[in-house]
């Protein structure tokens, strides 16, 4: 047996030289590696603590400035919590009744949710249970595009398209009205509700669905009697998160809802929401040290507490739900 000795394999040579170069490469000392590992770990921990710092500073800033607001002579806590008259910019005596703004926020949120919740839930059921694949592939990007449109665009749409339409339908609508802002906020929340609720429906185990269908149920039976109850906590959490989003929505109400705070249930009227008031304060020429300037912080604190409570409730409900099936 003659072994071919003369021709060396080029790939082998390349591998050998590579191995040699790896072995000859000056290796970093273990201590240096360990040192850099610890350095990176510390840097990452700083990143993580930064997010905690954000929360702490939000609460800190809002609390200190709100206390400063309540130290003014013209402001009393009973007036703030017990009155629905919000007139910080109109002469004397000023009244700071937060309910004047909260009622506006609730009106807009109510209209938005009356639009977004049923439509979002039904679309989610359709996407999750009924829709054939092609329609899913067509609808989902559309919902993503709707979710990605900036809120100022929805504000423009509300003011320029929805309001004239409402005025055409019924003449009583003001130029700035709660209905048009509420509908636009509803359109904005619709994709949120839809995708969160669809996630909840999708995470119901397939066995439950198959069991219901196998017992002779129609898709509707399976959905209403089995899947919806199983996904209920996820859907409730989707609703809560959507409500939080609607309450915090700013640009639509700043453009379309007007700037007259009043406690009313009539959607044709001009109202002002908490966020709308903040925008009015920031955009106007208000001195940085007056009562009305600090009232912005009190309003922001109220808004923060409400949305935080809703978000936490939503997360807790969803957390419970996850434990059941994963």
């Amino acid at each position: 047996m003659s072994q071919p000795v003369a021709v060396p394999d080029p790939t082998k040579i390349a591998l050998e030289s590579r191995a040699k170069s790896l072995l000859n490469r000056p290796r970093r000392r273990l201590a240096a590696t360990r040192f850099s590992e610890i350095g990176i770990y510390v840097a990452l921990i700083c990143c993580g603590l930064f997010s905690l710092l954000i929360t702490v500073s939000i609460i800190g800033v809002l609390l200190t400035e709100t206390t400063r607001f309540f130290q003014f002579d013209e402001v009393t806590l009973s007036n703030f919590l017990g009155s629905a008259e919000w007139t910080p910019n109109l002469g004397e005596p000023k009244s700071f009744g937060i309910w004047g703004l909260i009622s506006g926020t609730l009106l807009v949120t109510g209209i938005a949710m009356a639009f977004a919740l049923p439509l979002g839930l039904v679309t989610a059921i359709y996407l999750s249970e009924y829709a054939p694949r092609q329609i899913r592939n067509f609808l989902k990007p559309i919902l993503e595009v709707l979710a990605g449109i900036p809120t100022v665009v929805y504000g423009f749409f509300a003011l320029m398209t929805i309001t004239p339409f409402l005025q055409w339908v019924h003449e009583g609508f003001n130029v700035y009205n709660a209905m048009s802002a509420g509908l636009a906020v509803g359109i904005l929340c619709f994709p949120t509700v839809c995708s969160l609720a669809e996630d909840a429906l999708q995470s119901v185990p397939k066995t439950l669905r198959d069991g219901a269908l196998g017992l002779g149920g129609t898709r509707f039976d399976a959905t209403v009697k089995v899947i919806l109850p199983a996904a209920l906590s996820g859907i409730i959490s989707a609703f809560l998160l959507a409500v939080a989003r609607a309450i915090g929505e700013t640009m639509i109400v700043a453009l379309a809802a007007g700037s007259r705070p009043q406690a009313t249930l009539d959607p044709r009227n001009e109202i002002q929401t908490m966020t709308g008031f903040m925008v009015q304060m920031a955009g106007g020429d208000v001195s940085n040290f007056g009562t009305e300037y600090f009232s912005m912080y009190a309003v922001a604190f109220t808004l923060f507490l409400i949305t935080l409570a809703l978000t936490m409730m939503g997360n807790v409900v969803r957390g419970r739900f996850r434990e059941t099936y994963e």
Partner: peptide, 11 residues
Amino acid sequence: AGVPSVVYGIL
């Protein structure tokens, strides 16, 4: 993630 962006503006 659920804090309204206008509150971040105030911060």
